[in-house]
């Protein structure tokens, strides 16, 4: 195993996540794609941790922090989507254009 194959896997996953964020209209599906990007970052962090043989296991610790922050992000994100759906009766991101002239 080399570190390159894991970085390539992470890059592919992240790019697929970017594609999802850019193409999806439904806000819940946008959040799903963001979750995909966070999984890619976790793979990268742990791969670099193994590559550098870090004594403090910094990569693994930061992967744990990423998981915690992503859980918080999903909780708040879904609450906001729910509130938008209640007020606008739609969760499509392109219909939220009140700030547009």
């Amino acid at each position: 195993m080399t570190v390159t194959q894991f970085v390539l896997l992470g890059a592919a996953l992240f790019s697929i996540g970017v594609y999802g964020v850019l193409t999806r209209r439904n806000a819940v599906l946008v959040l799903l794609s963001v979750e995909l990007m966070l999984a890619a970052v976790n793979v990268n962090l742990v791969a670099f941790d193994r590559h550098l043989a870090d004594q403090l296991a910094g990569g693994q610790v930061f992967a744990l922090f990423t998981i915690a922050v992503s859980a918080a992000e999903v909780g708040i994100g879904l609450a906001i989507v729910l509130l938008i759906f209640r007020n606008r009766r739609s969760a499509n991101v392109d219909e939220l254009d009140l700030l547009k002239l």
Partner: peptide
């Protein structure tokens, strides 16, 4: 990669909790 604890945390937190939260979000909206 040998990161056991992180792997099981992903299983418990992401698969166990986050996906259920997403399913709630899908059903409610």
């Amino acid at each position: 990669l040998g990161a056991e604890f992180v792997a099981w945390t992903v299983v418990l937190v992401s698969i166990g909790a986050v996906v259920v939260l997403f399913l709630f979000g899908i059903m409610i909206t």
